[in-house]
Computed example of a mutant assay.
Amino acid sequence: MNVELKIKDFVFAMIYAYLLVFAVVIPLSAGWSDQSGVFAGLVFGVYALIFGLPVMLAAALIGYPVFKYIFGTLSFKYFVNVMVSCTGVAVIIALVSALGFIAVFGERHQGFGVALMIMSIPTMVVALLSGIIFWFRTK
C-alpha cells in the first residue's frame, strides 16, 4: 500500500476526536443522567486537560510509530487497516496510561485493573473516533 502516513494527520485526528467527544457526545449522553449537558461537557473538558493531554502526548510519541508499523504489516482494505492500527495503538496507550495513573496516584488508591478500566474506556472511544477522522482526512 503506497499511502503516505503523516504524523500531522494522526495528531489532528486525535485533537478532532477529543473536540467531538467534548462538544457532542458528552452533552448528548448527559441526557441520561441528572447533570446538564453543558456541565457534563465542562467536567469532561477539565478531566481531558488533566488526563487527556498526557495520554495524547504519549499517543503522539509512542502511538504514531506503532500505528505506522501495524498499518504497514496489514494487507486489508484501507479503512480496516486504519481501524485495526488505531485499536492496536489504543490498547498500548491504555496500558501505558494506566501505569502512569498508578505511578501518579499510587497503588493504594487504585488497583491496576481499575486504573486500566478508567484509562482504557475513554482511550478506546477517542482512538476509534480518531481512526474514522484519520480515514476521512487521508482517504
Rank of each mutant, 00 (worst) to 15 (best):
E4C: 07
L5S: 03
I7H: 10
K8C: 04
K8Y: 05
M14I: 11
M14Y: 10
M14S: 13
I15E: 11
A17N: 11
A17H: 14
L19H: 07
L19Y: 03
L20P: 02
L20C: 01
V21Y: 14
V21R: 09
V21D: 10
F22V: 08
A23F: 14
V24A: 15
V24Y: 09
P27V: 00
P27K: 04
L28I: 14
S29P: 03
S29K: 09
W32A: 15
W32R: 14
S33A: 10
D34L: 09
Q35F: 14
S36L: 02
V38S: 14
F39V: 09
F39Q: 12
L42E: 03
V43C: 04
V43I: 06
F44N: 02
F44H: 04
G45I: 03
V46W: 15
Y47N: 07
A48Y: 15
A48P: 10
L49W: 06
I50A: 13
F51G: 12
F51I: 03
G52P: 10
G52K: 12
L53G: 06
L53Y: 15
P54R: 02
P54W: 11
V55Q: 14
V55G: 13
V55L: 11
V55H: 14
V55W: 09
M56N: 00
M56Y: 00
A60N: 12
I62F: 09
I62D: 07
I62S: 14
I62Q: 10
G63S: 04
G63H: 04
Y64W: 13
Y64V: 13
Y64R: 14
P65S: 02
V66H: 01
F67Q: 05
F67L: 12
K68D: 02
I70N: 00
I70R: 00
G72F: 03
T73H: 04
T73K: 07
L74Y: 02
S75H: 15
F76V: 07
F76P: 02
F76G: 00
K77V: 06
F79D: 05
V80N: 11
V80H: 13
V80W: 13
M83G: 13
M83H: 07
V84F: 13
S85P: 09
G88F: 12
G88K: 11
G88E: 07
V89P: 05
V89D: 08
A90Y: 07
A90H: 03
A90L: 07
A90C: 05
V91W: 15
V91G: 14
I92E: 12
I92S: 15
A94W: 02
A94H: 04
V96Y: 01
S97N: 00
S97W: 01
A98F: 00
G100C: 11
F101C: 11
I102D: 13
V104C: 10
F105G: 15
G106P: 06
R108H: 05
R108N: 01
Q110T: 15
G111A: 08
G111T: 15
G113A: 09
V114T: 11
V114Q: 07
A115T: 09
L116D: 08
M117D: 12
I118L: 08
M119C: 13
S120R: 02
S120L: 00
M124W: 11
V126Y: 04
V126L: 05
L128W: 09
G131R: 06
G131C: 06
I132Y: 11
I133Y: 04
F134T: 08
W135I: 00
R137G: 01
R137W: 02
T138D: 12
T138L: 07
T138W: 08
K139H: 12
